[in-house]
Amino acid sequence: MEHEIKHHLTDDVLMGYAAGTLPEAFNLMVATHVSLCDTCRARAESFDALGGEVMAQTPGNDVAMDTDSFAATMSLIAGGAPDEIRMPRDAGSILPGPLQDYVGGGVDAVKWRSVGMGVKQAILPTSRDASARLLFIPAGAAMPDHGHKGTEMTMVLQGAFQDEDDYFARGDVEIADSDLHHTPVADIHEDCICLAVTDAPLEFQGLLPKIAQRFARI
C-alpha cells in the first residue's frame, strides 16, 4: 500500500452509506475513500452486516408475498441476468474507479473551470441534495478562507494540503462543519487535487470571492 491513511470517514457517514440514506455526492465520497482504505471498507461492511440483521432478524419486519410471487421470480430468473454496463476503469489513474465513472475517464478527462488564483474546479453530476466537485490547487497555493454551512468533506487524491491543525495526503479526508473557518494550503512539492463534497453552499469571506461564488458555484 502507498501512504498510510490517517484521517478516516466517521461512523455516521459509513452507516448512512450502508443504509442507503446519504445524498449521492456523499456516497461518491465514501465509495472513493473506501476504494483506497481497507480500514473503512471493513467498517462499511460491518454496517452492512448491521443492516442485514435489522432487515432479517428483527421480528415483525416481514410482509407476506403475493401468492404467485415465487413463480414470478422464477420467470424473472429464466429471463436471464440484466446487462450491466460498466465503463472500463484505469487502475493506474489517480482517480479511483468510482470517480472515473463520474468524470468519464481519468484526470485528463476532467473539465476544469478556473475560479481564480490558479485554483480550478469541476462540478460532478450528482443529485442536487448535495454537491461533489474536484478541486485543483497549485502547489503551495492557499484556498480562500471560507466558512461552512452544513458538512463538507475533502479528500486528497494527489499531492497534499495543510490546514491550521493537520496534514492531509492521498486518501485522507478532512471533515469540516459549520464551526470551522479554515485556510487549507497545498503542499509545495506537487499540485494538489481533491474531491470535495458538501450538503450546503460554501461561504467565502469578502466581496470578490462572493462574486466568484455566484459564477463558479463553489
Binding site: 442485514g52 474507479g97 443529485s127
Partner: peptide, 30 residues
C-alpha cells in the same frame, strides 16, 4: 465476508436507492 442476510440486504438497499431515490449508487473499486 458476509452472512446471507447481509448480502441480500445490500442487494435490497441498492434496489431501494435505484427505484425509490432514483439515484446512481457509486460502488467502491472491486
Amino acid at each position: 465476508r458476509a452472512s446471507v442476510a447481509t448480502w441480500i440486504f445490500t442487494i435490497a438497499r441498492n434496489r431501494k436507492i435505484d427505484v425509490l431515490r432514483k439515484q446512481r449508487r457509486p460502488e467502491p473499486e472491486d
